[in-house]
Design a protein around this nucleic acid. Structure first.
Lengths: 337, 337
DNA sequence: ACTTGGCACTCGGGAACACAGAGTGCTAGA
DNA sequence: TCTAGCACTCTGTGTTCCCGAGTGCCAAGT
C-alpha cells in the first residue's frame, strides 16, 4: 500500500510545503527533488496518498497539502531530528550559563527557545512535587505578622505574609522556626502534610493557634503552587507565520495557564523525557497548531515540561532538534545548581 | 478660530469614529448627534478642522478621521474621564482583595485591567528604589553556599544563591546575618551601598573575603533589579481591534522590557499620580498606538506605573477611568499590606 | 504491471470595467 | 453666517473574462 516511493513523495511534499507555504504540484515536485520519475507517476502516487488521507487539495486543481495524518507519518517515520550547529550549541550554553537564579533560568530558556525556533516557546516552572525542603524561614514583620519563606532544593522560593491571630514576640517566632526546620529540613514536599500533622500537639497549648495558622498557610502554599506557573515568549512570531485566522484564539490560550498546561502536559508518562509532538487536531482546544514538547530536569528526576507551539506547517526536524537541545542544556544547568 | 461648535463637531467625530471604526461624514454626523445645524454647515466646520490639522480624510471623498492632534485636543479639553459603574468597582475590589502576595497582586491587576479595558494591560512591578529593607536573611545551603534573601517593606522578595570563597560554618553565617540586619534593617534601599561600604573593615580580617562576596551579590541584586520587571496581559485583544498592520511590532515591544519601560515611563515627574496619555506619534517606537498610564502606590510614595496600550482609536474616557480606578485600588491594597 | 506522454477539464485569482453611493467643495440665496 | 443645491470625485463592489497551474484519465510504451 505504502510504497517506498510514495513515502518519498510524501516527504517531499511536506518539505516543499513547509518551505514555500504553497500547495505543491506534481511537476514542481518531480523537478526539485530528484525522484527519477515523471510528473504523471507522481500524480498517481499523490492520488494514492490522498486516498489514504495523508494529503489533500485545498480546491480542485490546486497542488496538494499535507493533512495532520500526513505530518504525523512524516514526523514518525520520514524525518529525523536535526541537531543544532556547533555555533548554536555554544550560544545556548553561554546564554544559559549566565543565569543568576531560577527565575532567570526560566526566563532565559523561554526566550532562547523562541528565538531559536522563531515560534512561540513555552516553559513550565519546575514543579514543587519532587523537590525537597531546604529551609523554612519565618521573618517577623511586626508583632502580628510574619513572612513565611520556603526554599526548596531546586532553588525555588515561595513567600507568604501571614496574619497571626495574636501578638507573638520574636523569640517565639524564632523557636517555631527552629522546630519547623528540624521537622522538615530535607524532606520531600509531598511528605510535608504528614510531617506537620501532629505538630500542634507536640507543642505547648498556648502556641497552638499560632502554629495552626502558620501551618495552614504553609500547606496552602504547597497545594496552590502545585500545578505550576507557565511562561511564554515569542508571541511576535505568531504574527509573521501564516496564522492570520485563529490568532486571537492562540493568544488567548497562551494567557490561560490552565489551557497551556493541558497543551504542554499529558505526557505519555512512561517516558517523560521523550519528545512529544502533537499535531493539529491532535491538540485539545487549538486547531491548526502543533506542539513540540519534552520534559526537562536532571536524569530521571523530571521537573517540568517545555516546548514550542507553532502552526501545523512547521519545520519539525529543526524544531524538535532545538527543543531537545534546550531541554538538555537547561536540565544540565539545573542539575549543577 | 476654534468655535464652540467646531469643538462639538470634533468631539462628535472622535466619538463616532471610535465606536464605528469608519470615517465619519457630514450627514451621519448631523443626524446622529443633535447639532442643530445642517450637514453643509458641518462640512464647513470640518474643512476648518482639517485646515488646522485636527482631522484628515483617508482619501478624497471619504469621511473624516481624527488625527493624533485631534485626539489630543479631545483628551485634553473635550472629554472627561468616565467613572466605572458600581458593579465594576465592586468586582475590582473583591478580585484584588483575594491576592495572597505581591506577585499575585501584580498578576491580578494586569489581568483585571486587560479585561476591563479590552486592551493590553501593562503593569510595572513596584520599584525597589523607594522601598526599605525589612529583613535580610542568609540561609546556609551547604558549607560553600548560602542563599541571600532580601525582603522589602513592599513585600518584595529577592533571592540569590552565593558561592562562598571558602568553607564557612553556620554559626559565622548566623553572625553575619545579625550584623547585616542590625546595619540595614529599615533603611532605604538607595542607602544600602553607603551603609555597607565600610562593613568589611569593621569585621575581623578572616571574615572579610566572605563578607565581600556576599555584599557584592547584595549590591548586584539591588542594581540589577533597579529598573523593574514589567508584565502584560490581554495580548489577545490586539487581534480583535483593528491592529492588523504592525501587530508584530506591538507584540515585539511587549516582550521587550526596555521598550515597554520607556513607553510606560517618562512621566512628567512632577505629578506621577496623574494620568498620562500618549497618543500615536507621541510615542517612541510605536506608531498607531496610544498609551494611557499612571503611577500607583500609596500616597506620595509612588511605587511604579501601570497602564494600557491600545490602538490610537480607543475609547479614551472609559480607558482612562479604568486605569485610574485600578491604580487607586491597587495602591490601596498595597498600602494595607 | 508500472510508467509515461498526451489531452481535456476545472478552478482560483487577477485584470478590466461599470456602477452605485457616500461624501465633498463650491456657489448662490436666505 | 447658515443653508440648500449641484456637480464632481472617489472607493468599494459586483461582473465578466481569461490565463495558467494542476489534475484525472486514457492509451501507448517498456
Amino acid at each position: 500500500m505504502l510504497d517506498e516511493r510514495k513515502l518519498a513523495v510524501l516527504r517531499a511534499i511536506v518539505e516543499d510545503y513547509v518551505s514555500t507555504n504553497e500547495p505543491v504540484g506534481s511537476k514542481a515536485l518531480a523537478d526539485r527533488h530528484n525522484l527519477k520519475v515523471s510528473p504523471a507517476t507522481v500524480r498517481n502516487d499523490m492520488a494514492a496518498l490522498e486516498e489514504e488521507g495523508y494529503i489533500t487539495q485545498p480546491h480542485t486543481s490546486a497542488g496538494r497539502v499535507p493533512t495532520d495524518k500526513g505530518y504525523r507519518l512524516f514526523v514518525d517515520r520520514l524525518s529525523q531530528v536535526k541537531p543544532l550547529s556547533g555555533a548554536e550549541r555554544r550560544a545556548i550554553e553561554t546564554f544559559l550559563a549566565g543565569a543568576v537564579d531560577l527565575d532567570d533560568v526560566v526566563t532565559r530558556t523561554v526566550r532562547l527557545l523562541a528565538q531559536l525556533t522563531r515560534q512561540v516557546a513555552v516553559v513550565q516552572y519546575p514543579t514543587l512535587t519532587r523537590s525537597t525542603v531546604r529551609h523554612v524561614e519565618l521573618v517577623p514583620l511586626n508583632d502580628r505578622r510574619v513572612m513565611l519563606v520556603l526554599i526548596t532544593n531546586t532553588g525555588r522560593v515561595e513567600q507568604r505574609v501571614i496574619e497571626l491571630p495574636e501578638v507573638v514576640e520574636e523569640a517565639r517566632i524564632a523557636h517555631l522556626r527552629a522546630v519547623l526546620n528540624s521537622c522538615l529540613d530535607g524532606c520531600g514536599l509531598a511528605s510535608v502534610p504528614d510531617l506537620v500533622a501532629d505538630l500542634p500537639e507536640r507543642l505547648p497549648a498556648e502556641d497552638r493557634p499560632v502554629v495552626a495558622t502558620i501551618l495552614s498557610v504553609l500547606l496552602e502554599t504547597l497545594v496552590e503552587r502545585h500545578d505550576e506557573k507557565i511562561v511564554f515568549a515569542g508571541a511576535a512570531n505568531l504574527a509573521g507565520a501564516g496564522f492570520s485566522t485563529g490568532l486571537r484564539d492562540v493568544l488567548e490560550a497562551l494567557e490561560e495557564q490552565v489551557v497551556l498546561m493541558r497543551l504542554l502536559g499529558e505526557t505519555t508518562s512512561d517516558t517523560p523525557s521523550a519528545l512529544t509532538v502533537r499535531i493539529g487536531s491532535e491538540n485539545p482546544y487549538l486547531r491548526g497548531t502543533s506542539i513540540v514538547a519534552t520534559g526537562y530536569g536532571s536524569g530521571d528526576n523530571q521537573l517540568a515540561r517545555l516546548g514550542v507551539l507553532g502552526p501545523t506547517r512547521m519545520d519539525y526536524p529543526v524544531t524538535m532538534g532545538a527543543v531537545r537541545a534546550v531541554a538538555r542544556y537547561v536540565s544540565q544547568i539545573l542539575a549543577a545548581s
